[in-house]
């Protein structure tokens, strides 16, 4: 297995005058879960479909499992698994039959029973596809993606339209894949999904990568200033620290050194008999980072 599963440099793709992917670089290591996070229309699906070999690129260098996906050789396709954004399955075949049909296309497929239990469809093995719920069909999609025991699995928005409990089931399934040592390339527009699953996240907006890194440090979260927020009771004096008033009447202190600042603030409050209402100390969440990045890029 190669150390680097996916290597992309300067990837570009336009549809007519519309630039969908405007020169991106990506690198995904073998065994990693990588999430491409971005709003609808940001270029996620275009990117993942170029990596899968479904689309041709206009420019750039793309290497997936040491091959150019555009050539689409059978050898390449037998090493990847694809779960497309929209489902399309033979409606009159049963779950077992569909998985068997696809297993037959690969040189070294996973055992049928293992696939069925990985996606949690044990109860539905003899049910026809057209009688499955949306969530079950999506799991069957994943089952087909896994049929050939791929080294690299592409999941294009695997949980869009799921209710919260179905989503958690899907997440556990994806974590299961990671423990099998598979490389997973995931696209999503849910921040919590990227945070819950991915080793590394890249945020794509308008066809460009605006941030990349582990979810915990993305967009400089690890070094970002801490925010202390509270309400001052009416008529109280103000602490001798730089404050920013908020529209809801609360005040913020933004500080790179929360330990010292909190000590100063609470000493002042105790000495003056002031109670700090609704006191909270927080780091920016992935959501804050994501919203600030996407807002800036869109405006």
């Amino acid at each position: 297995m190669p150390e680097t599963a996916i290597q992309v440099r300067g990837l570009r793709k336009s549809y007519g005058a519309v630039s969908a992917v405007a020169g991106i670089d990506l690198s995904v290591c073998a065994g990693e879960v990588f999430a491409l996070l971005g709003p609808n229309g940001a270029g996620k699906t275009t990117t993942v479909e170029i990596l899968e070999g479904h689309r041709r690129r206009d420019a750039g260098e793309v290497v997936v499992l040491d091959a150019d996906p555009e050539l689409g050789t059978r050898g390449f396709r037998s090493r990847i698994g694809i779960v497309l954004q929209s489902t399309g399955l033979q409606p009159y075949l049963t779950v077992d039959e569909v998985i068997e049909l696809f297993r037959g296309y690969y040189p070294n497929p996973l055992p049928l029973d293992e696939i069925v239990s990985l996606v949690g469809l044990e109860e539905k093995r003899h049910e026809r596809v057209l009688r499955l719920s949306g969530g079950q069909q999506r799991r069957l999609d994943v089952a087909i993606g896994l049929a050939g025991n791929p080294e690299l699995l592409f999941l294009d928005e695997p949980t869009t339209g799921f209710d919260p409990s179905a989503r958690h089931v899907a997440w556990n399934m994806i974590r299961g894949l990671q423990s099998l040592g598979k490389t997973v390339f995931l696209t999503t527009h849910y921040m919590d999904e990227a945070q819950a699953l991915a080793d590394r996240v890249a945020i794509i907006v308008d066809g460009a990568i605006v941030a990349e890194g582990p979810p915990g440090t993305l967009g400089g979260r690890a070094d970002a200033a801490t925010r202390i927020r509270f309400h001052l009771p009416p008529g109280s004096s103000r602490p001798p620290i730089q404050l920013t008033a908020q529209t809801d009447g609360s005040v913020d202190i933004v500080t790179p050194d929360p330990t010292q600042t909190l000590y100063d603030l609470t000493s002042w409050a105790l000495a003056n008999g002031v109670s700090l209402l609704g006191l909270e100390v927080s780091k920016p969440s992935l959501e804050d980072v994501y919203l600030s990045l996407t807002r800036r890029e869109i405006s």
Partner: peptide
């Protein structure tokens, strides 16, 4: 119909010629 419903696209992602 198979093309329009994405069944062909899914087959295209496998080693089936």
């Amino acid at each position: 119909i198979a093309r329009d419903h994405g069944i062909l696209k899914r087959l295209r992602g496998t080693p089936l010629p």
